[in-house]
Design a protein around this nucleic acid. Sequence first.
DNA 1: ACCTGAACACCGTTCAAGT
DNA 2: ACCTGAACACCGTTCAAGT
Lengths: 217, 217
Amino acid sequence: MCSTNYKGGLLMDTPNKKNYHHGDLRKTLIHVGIELISESGASSLDLRKVARIAGVSHAAPYRHFADKKALIAAISEEGFNLLAIEMEQAISMKANSAHEQLRGMGHAYVQFAITNPSLVREMFSGLTIEREAYPSLYDISKKLFNMIETVVIIGQEKGNIKKSDSNELTCAIWSMMHGTAILIIENQLKPVTMQINGIEHITQVCMDSLILGLGAS
Amino acid sequence: MCSTNYKGGLLMDTPNKKNYHHGDLRKTLIHVGIELISESGASSLDLRKVARIAGVSHAAPYRHFADKKALIAAISEEGFNLLAIEMEQAISMKANSAHEQLRGMGHAYVQFAITNPSLVREMFSGLTIEREAYPSLYDISKKLFNMIETVVIIGQEKGNIKKSDSNELTCAIWSMMHGTAILIIENQLKPVTMQINGIEHITQVCMDSLILGLGAS
DNA sequence: ACCTGAACACCGTTCAAGT
DNA sequence: ACCTGAACACCGTTCAAGT
C-alpha cells in the first residue's frame, strides 16, 4: 500500500551541482540509476545517461564506481535496503500472530515487486553470487534472511510454527514469497491475477497454502 | 540428473555454411545465443558475436529477427521448451503418486535452473510481459502452467490434494518451485545449500513444507 | 530470397590534463 | 581530491549493393 516507488522522486536532489565536491555524487548516481531502471528496464541501464542526468561528465562516475557493474551492485544493495524496510514494517504490524506475520510479509514482498519490478529483477540477476566483489550486497540480502528466521523462531516458541530446523523453514518461506512475486511481475499467473483483487488474493492463497499445506484435510 | 546443458554442444552444428541458405540460420543463431548466455551471462549477449560464431556477417541476423530483443525472446522460448521437457519427464516418472510428482517436479525445476542459471534468468527477465510482441513465448510458458495444473487435478481426483481451485493451487506450486530455484542460483540459501546434498535437501524441504504445511502438528 | 560491407550513432572505459 | 574532454574499441541497427 505504501511501498517505496522512485518514479517522480528524482528532480528534487539532482541538478544541485554545489554538492558534487562533497561526496554526494555517489548517492546521486545510485538514485538516478534506480530511477532509470524503474523507467526503462534494467537491461538498458546507460552509464553515460546516468552521468548526464546527474549533471556530470561521462567519466565522473569512475571516481566512485569501478565499472558499470559496481554501480548496478550498489543499486541492488539499495533495493534490498528498501525491501527490508517494507518487510520490517509488515512484521511489526502483526506482532501478535506468526501466521499473520507470514501473510503480511508475503503481501509486502509482492507489493514491493509490483511497485519496482525492474529493480527486483536487477536484485536477483546474479550479482549476489560474486560475494568477494560485492560483500555488502551479500550482507544486506542476508539481513532479509535473518528477519524471516526471527519470525519463524518466535512462531515456534509460541507453538504456531512446527519445530523443524528454522533455517530450512526460512528457505521455504522466502522461496514462496519470492516465487509468487516474480511470477506475478512476469505475468505468468495471469489466469488468476486478472480477477478483481487478483494479486492480493493469489498472494494470500500462496502463503496460506504454505502455512496449511496442500494435502487433503 | 540428466538436465539439458548447452555447454560444449555448439561446434557440431555451427560452421556448416552450406545450411544457411536453407533456413537454418535462425535455429543456429538461437543455439549460439543459448551457448553464449550460458557462458558469459545474459546481460552481455552480443549480437555481433553471435553472428561471428555462426559464421555470418553481423547484419545477417536481421533477416531472421527484428532486433536483439526478438532473438532473446526466441532463446527464452527455447528455454521454456527445454524446461517443459524436463518437467514432463519428472511427472511421468512418478505417475502413481501426486505428492511424489510434486517433489519430482521441484527437483527437475531446480536442477534445470542450476544447470542453466543465465538462461533461466533470461526467461524471467520481463519479456513474457510483452504478449502481443512475443505471443509464442507466452504460449509455451502457459504450457508449463497447464502441466502443473494437470498434476493437481488428477491428485485431487485421487484424494491426495485438497479440493480448492486448481488454478490457485497451481500458482502456489509453481511459486514455490520457482522461488526455490531462483534463490538457490542467486546463492541466497547459502546457509543450507552449503551442506552435503544441500541443494537436493532444501528442494525437498521446500516442496514438503508446501505439501504438509508449516503449522504445528 | 538471403547475405555483405560500409556507415552512423552511441556506449563503456581509459587517461592525460585541468581546478 | 575530484572532474573534464578527447580518444579508442566495439556494439546495435540500417541500407544500398551484391549473388
